[in-house]
Write a protein that binds this DNA or RNA. Structure first.
Lengths: 218, 218
DNA sequence: ATATCATTCAATTATAAGATTGATAGCTCA
DNA sequence: TGAGCTATCAATCTTATAATTGAATGATAT
């Protein structure tokens, strides 16, 4: 095999990785897997896709080095191969948002007019936390919180937030976070909290991005 | 459109960007475009692909926000939309190399046993340059050098290197660079220079990566 | 104006990827 | 051991993407 063929073969393999990110369902699956390892069945339920379909998508991502799997009892648990995958997804998102006007609009309208302004990035959140002036609220399901969360975060799943409002210490601004930039949970939380007259804003990404950027987790 | 549909639509668009990186030909085209803007015709000649094929691939990449085009006379010149695209490609390469054993092997055998050891990264190169102890050699075609190169680099295209050896100042180690990590030129150059008894090594990436990481160019 | 040339478009055929279904493998627990 | 379950495989149909060809566009130069 000469240099030119070798190069083509290498690029072919890179293309395999890119193709693995070339389907919307796989982005949704990755968003969930990034919270912690999950079984095929659980992913199938969450995404409302057929088990066989999910299994095939997962295998394609495994071949591409995006996820890895581990068998435990009757279940196969998939997890991210590497935190670099989160970084890669972020890079892709960045290119899409910056270079395609349509995507910018979609993302803007997803985040809504008001809450975009009040989203804090990791740097700002770190400052707020060190000043001790905010409550950090994790609104993901309990299981996802359990498999890893931001240090000092209080967990109240979005579904239970309405009933458990009194568990939140009063008098401090609340910063809510969830699975990532396109998970609607933290946004819903902010809306609910504001309706209650509380001061609230959302973290502009989520647990996976926090972890991938090397910040400490619990 | 509700949140869930919006999210799916956003992920769909991200998938479009990923798909655009999901073909080996497009990686080859990007490697060339990353050196500076190029016409469809010139890209077609270099890659030995039909003009219409190249045109279609380019359009797909334009839709994905990877490249942009500009008409000048009878020619359409394509260039990178953004240096972030280089970063993105690097991230993809990283995931592929780290998580797929087969790719690691391919990349290793591409770079050859000996020259891998003597490849320097951007950081090392910067140190070498500031110590003034090395000659920096750009072995890309003249036109690519002209549209941008590392500061202080001497340009001798690989094709002419054999005949123009005497233009290289003697007594110093030579660091050769080219289009990027999978361009064979700098490696060929190192082999040729070593056969001549000169001390030579290669830069482990290329001009586009240097530029994308924010380092100065001429 | 018209000939020329680079590029794109449009239509066709070939190839590859996705979804669905039913069957199979492998693990648990009775 | 065998019923019951999870996940994967295999086969099929459907859909999407690629390459090729020839025609069309649009700018340039005579």
């Amino acid at each position: 095999m000469n240099k030119s063929e070798q190069k083509r073969s290498i690029y072919q393999h890179f293309a395999v990785v890119a193709k693995a990110l070339g389907h919307e369902y796989r982005w949704e699956l990755l968003e969930l897997i990034a919270q912690g390892e999950r079984s095929v069945d659980s992913l199938s339920q969450f995404t409302e896709l057929a088990v066989a379909t999910v299994s095939q998508h997962l295998q394609q991502m495994r071949r591409a080095g995006l996820v890895c799997s581990r068998k435990k009892g009757r279940f196969v648990y998939y997890s991210l191969a590497d935190d670099r995958v989160i970084t890669l997804m972020g890079g892709l998102r960045d290119v899409a948002e910056r270079n395609i006007a349509e995507v910018r609009q979609l993302v803007d309208s997803f985040h809504g007019d008001s809450s975009t302004l009040d989203a804090v990035d990791a740097h700002e959140l770190l400052e707020l936390l060190s000043s001790g002036s905010v409550i950090l609220l994790d609104v993901r399901p309990e299981q996802e919180y359990a498999s890893g969360h931001l240090p000092g975060a209080l967990n109240i799943p979005m579904e239970e937030l309405q009933e458990r409002l009194r568990e939140i210490p009063e008098g401090q601004t609340i910063v809510a976070y969830c699975r990532g930039p396109f998970c609607a949970l933290s946004q819903e939380a902010v809306e609910l909290l504001r309706e209650q007259g509380l001061e609230a804003m959302r973290f502009d990404s989520g647990y996976p991005e926090w972890k991938a950027s090397g910040l400490p987790v619990q």
